[in-house]
Amino acid sequence: MITTGRILLGLALLACWEWGHRVAGNLFVASPMEVVQRLREIVEDGSLWGHAASTLWITALGFAIGFFFGVLLPFLLDQSERATKAIEPAVLASMGIPKFALAPLLILWFGIGDAPKVVIIAFMTFYMIFISTFSGLRGVDHKLIVMAKIVGADPMKLARDVLWRSLQPYMFAGLKVALPRALSAAIVGEFLVADKGLGYMIEHARQMGDTTGVFTGIVVVTALVLGLNWLLERLQAKVMAWRPKDASVAH
């Protein structure tokens, strides 16, 4: 019953799309059939892979940099209560910096290559991972640490078997938010400055008045992000089989 409803709703949405196309015209709403056709074309001529690879590359690079510092800083801060108290408000305030608004500046600094986008993605990733690692470290059950020390765990064992495992749910919560956002940051970055990538593909099509191109690009991007979400969900379920089903870290 519910599944049928879902399928029907999906079909209805498709029908709406087609109807919108007929009412609003080709300039505003591309025809679903043409989008499929275009999708086939860019898959066949290989241009989709080129754009996607470029987007995924800057996403991965920016994400890796942001992730590294986002994990490192909380661990460093964990060593000193005083340092944490001193810089916490500054870090929180710096979150107010509009990351994308840095783009024009970064372009002035680094030119129109990948660097500005990578910096923006790294910046965004950093905050999200920082927050989840930070609250994760605070959330470690102190009694488990005491227990591990008593039974003879050395600092390495403690870090690996208690701290890291305690952090995992927070890490995943952070990852699930950060990774798709890093991808969409890459795409928005490509709206602003690029000569390749999925974002460029969409924005270029818009500037050319190629509505079918815009729609096709958005379909691809949406599918990519949703696919990524799904993958992360699966991975999390696998890695954290030890958790009771209903417990989850809100993000």
Partner: peptide
Amino acid sequence: ILDPYLVGGYGIPKLALAPLFIL
């Protein structure tokens, strides 16, 4: 019935829709 669509909508990068809205 709506749930998967809303979850999907949540996941869609809305900012990536900007060109569409400008269009």
